[in-house]
Amino acid sequence: MIRNIFIFLLILCSIALKAQEAHLPNMAETFRNDGKIYVVISVISIIFFSIVLFLIFLERKIKRLEDKFKGN
């Protein structure tokens, strides 16, 4: 009898746990576990660093022009 009640309680617990799990908001877990997030990060990083490189070259060009004006 006690064993039956115990099993019943266990089942109840597991149902409660499952209900909680079902309520958890979805967070793209499979995508992360596949490691695909690193693909996104590398693409974003490449774009960001190319913009930074562009700005650096632009600044160097401006510096050269400034030196030209100082020379005059």
Binding site: L24, P25, M27, A28, I37, I41, S45, F48
Partner: peptide, 25 residues
């Protein structure tokens, strides 16, 4: 600024965030 922004681009996508309905990721 470049280092900090790079850090936020990488860690911003990897770090654990609160699980919220509607907002999700």
């Amino acid at each position: 600024s470049v280092f900090i922004i790079f850090y936020t681009l990488v860690w911003g996508l990897l770090n654990p965030v609160p699980r919220l309905d509607i907002l999700n990721e």
